[in-house]
């Protein structure tokens, strides 16, 4: 046997390579079964970036379905609540081109919160059924109200209301939400001589 191999080095090399291939193939096959990942991990990562307003503006019934669609190759610019920042984060994650938000699906708005004009509410429970995050409280023929801290501002409750008593109110800036803005660098000419300013004024 050894003699045969010595006399035919080509055969020896072939056998060695085939043997290695078989061993590593078996190893990889075992690993694929043993360390199998459940579900699609990229979907979870995409879903973590999406804003979870569950508004359906992207045309999918919730953020997770859209995450699945993105993982399957759909455009990343269909989420108005996520805004440009969300698109950038998705682009970075998926190594895709940063594209502007698709106007067809709506535009980026300031965060809003639903407000029920309680005098006008007739207690039909339609908004309660529409709310994707159970943020509306009420019972049949009793006044409903929005739990503002749970509201994602998706405005899905506005359309079903038969008496149009739901307003979407932009979230007011409070001391808790106020923060310093980055200095404005847009209108700064590079040719301004520092010593000119102030003295002349």
């Amino acid at each position: 046997m050894i003699e045969l191999l010595v006399q035919h080095p080509l055969l020896a090399a072939l056998l060695a390579l085939v043997g290695l291939g078989a061993v590593f193939g078996a190893l990889l096959g075992y690993a694929a079964v043993r360390f199998r990942t459940e579900g699609n991990p990229i979907v979870e990562q995409i879903n973590a970036i999406l804003p979870q307003t569950q508004c359906g503006q992207c045309g999918h019934p919730g953020c997770r379905p859209y995450a699945e669609a993105i993982a399957a190759g759909e455009d990343i610019n269909k989420c108005p609540p996520g805004g440009q920042a969300g698109i950038e984060a998705l682009a970075q994650l998926l190594d895709r081109e940063v594209v502007p938000l698709d106007d067809e699906h709506g535009e980026e708005k300031v965060p809003q919160v639903a407000f029920i004009r309680e005098d006008e509410c007739i207690g039909c429970t339609k908004c309660i059924q529409a709310c994707p995050v159970d943020a509306i409280l009420g019972a049949a023929k009793h006044m409903h109200t929005v739990i503002a801290s749970e509201c994602t501002g998706c405005d899905l409750c506005v359309e079903p209301c038969p008496v149009d008593c739901i307003d979407m109110i932009p979230q007011a800036q409070t001391l808790q939400t106020w923060h310093w803005e980055l200095p404005d660098t847009s209108n700064r000419g590079a040719d301004i001589i520092a010593t000119d300013a102030g003295e002349a004024a």
Partner: peptide, 28 residues
């Protein structure tokens, strides 16, 4: 300093948003 204050605030805001998103996801 204004850049750092703004950056800190943005990061905190992003953390808050992420927290809220996670909360909304759980509720959904």
């Amino acid at each position: 300093v204004q850049y750092y204050r703004a950056a800190k605030a943005e990061v905190l805001q992003m953390r808050r948003d992420a927290q809220k998103a996670e909360h909304s996801r759980q509720r959904f």
